[in-house]
Amino acid sequence: MSVFAIVTSAAAAAAEEAQAHAAEASSAGLPQLDPAWWPSQLFWLVITFGFLYWLMSSRFLPAIAGAIEERRDRIADDLDQAGDFKRQAEDAETAYNQALADAKAKAQGIAADTRAEMDDEIATLQAETDAQLAKQVTTAEARIGEMKAAAATKVGEAAAETARAVVETLIDEAPTEEAASRAVTDAATRLRG
């Protein structure tokens, strides 16, 4: 006996059974089409559906709607409040920035003033120092000039003395001081020129 034969026999058995049921059902008719039970079904439909409608419309749905509405209001309120807080924070930030800018400007003013003051002081000090130094330089220069002149005179005298000594040694005759100094001066003038 093949598998195919088993399947066909099983299918035939099932079909037979279904046919038997179908015959049974058709003899009784569809239960849905039996008018005897219609009034009862309609009666209980009206009772259950009507009662449910009454409860829904008068109690359950308003309760749910109320809860949803309340939540919506609360969220809207919270958002408004958050907006207020945000505005306040922004105001505070603006005020802070303003204060910061003011302080910066003031600090810069003070710094500029101080710098100007110090510049003045430095300039005054420098002028004083310069003047003093100039005076010292002038004095020193004057002294140098004097010393130079003195040195030059001394050198001249020494040269004249030396010249006289040299001449005396050479010719055994000493020129006058006047002549020696004139000769030295002439020589110096020639050398310079």
Binding site: E24, A28, L30, A36, P39, S40, F43, W44
Partner: peptide, 28 residues
């Protein structure tokens, strides 16, 4: 059971409103 048996209306408590049958059935 047959495929239509499940749809049968079966009375549980017999109730009548005048001549109208309003029995409590399995559907009710």
């Amino acid at each position: 059971a047959g495929p239509m048996e499940q749809f049968e209306i079966l009375p549980i408590v017999d109730l009548h409103l005048g001549s109208i049958n309003i029995s409590l059935t399995n559907s009710a």
